[in-house]
């Protein structure tokens, strides 16, 4: 099911939590929703899941609108809220039964669905414990299991990996990627590598506005602009090497920190061949030449710090 967010605005008093944002997510797409704390990620998700109404604008999924068809939509959405609130006094299995019943899963399918979820989320050992006795990682899995119990077409996950250890994070990411093949998934995070590892597309939101939108690789390209390399050159006097480097036309900046040279080319230019030639001509030995890739972290800082 496609999700179309159209001019969505939510005001709290005079403050805009989200400010006229629009985007679209296609079926089978995993959208990473990125932003600093308080940017409006959770508010957007609460509106998409029909928990809150927008002050302005609309969210449409398929032919349905959150404004008028909440009842229909809620059956098709699986939601893992921020901080993963659960009934801690309930045993895992009972809670999943409750979730299935309340989501209208037909009685004869409930057992099968629960078995499937227990397997998918790796809950087998813990399924008879009370949720309150589980570790944070397992609670998160219960949260995911309840969100998917009715096989929804849309999955909204609000920071699904917070509080998990690195192994669990990898597992949850794999799970999300697996699910994303047939469902529409939106998940929010403020952990950048997570987005690169999982998403087809990233939207960065800051102060209630969308500040970047694209595939993770595209965004990285946007940010990198100029080629930056780290060099280690031996068998020469660093000062003269630096001087010679600066004479190369395509190089905008060259610097030496005592061990390595950092060379930034002019925009759109590459200078690696020139550097190689220069070193050959002078009998210097290049022991390292590695591109410094700008990562999303930098994109993120650039677009959110202004």
């Amino acid at each position: 099911m496609n999700i179309r967010v159209d001019n969505l605005t939510k005001r709290y008093g005079s403050q805009n939590a989200i400010d006229h944002i629009s985007f679209e997510v296609k079926s089978g797409e995993i959208l990473g929703f990125l932003g600093p704390n308080g940017a409006g990620k959770t508010t957007t998700m609460k509106i998409i899941t029909c928990f809150m109404a927008p002050s302005e604008g609309d969210v449409r999924m398929g032919d349905y609108s959150v404004l008028t068809d909440a009842e229909t939509l809620k059956k098709r959405i699986g939601y893992l809220p921020e901080n993963n609130p659960l009934y801690l006094d309930m045993p895992v299995i009972e809670y999943l039964q409750f979730s299935a019943a309340i989501q209208g899963v037909p009685k004869e399918q409930v057992k099968g669905r629960i078995r499937e979820m227990v397997r998918l989320c790796g809950l087998d050992k813990e399924k008879h414990k009370n949720i309150g006795e589980l570790s944070k990682g397992y609670r998160q899995r219960v949260g995911l299991a309840q969100a998917m119990i009715h096989n929804p077409e849309v999955l909204i996950l609000d920071e699904p990996t917070t509080g998990l250890d690195p192994n669990q994070i990898v597992e949850i990411r794999e799970l999300i990627r697996e699910l994303g093949k047939e469902k529409t998934v939106i998940f929010s995070t403020h952990i950048l590598p997570e987005v690169e590892a999982t998403c087809d597309r990233v939207i960065i939101i800051n102060d209630g506005k969308i500040v970047a939108d694209g595939a993770p690789s595209e965004l990285r390209k946007q940010a990198s602009g100029a080629e930056v390399s780290r060099l280690r050159i031996e068998d020469g006097n660093p000062n003269s090497i630096l001087e010679k480097l600066r004479t190369i036309d395509t190089i905008a900046l060259a610097d030496y920190n005592g061990f390595t040279f950092t060379v930034e080319s002019k925009r759109g230019e590459t200078s690696r061949r020139e550097i190689f030639k220069l070193c050959v001509d002078n009998n210097w030995v290049i022991t390292e030449m590695s591109p410094i890739e700008r990562d999303l972290e930098e994109v993120f800082r650039n677009v959110t710090m202004g």
């Binding site: 899941t49 009842e71 809620k74 059956k75 809220p81 659960l86 979730s99 989501q103």
Partner: peptide
């Protein structure tokens, strides 16, 4: 948990 409950069907 109210959020979880009220976003169910």
């Amino acid at each position: 948990t109210i959020e979880l409950l009220l976003t169910k069907a």
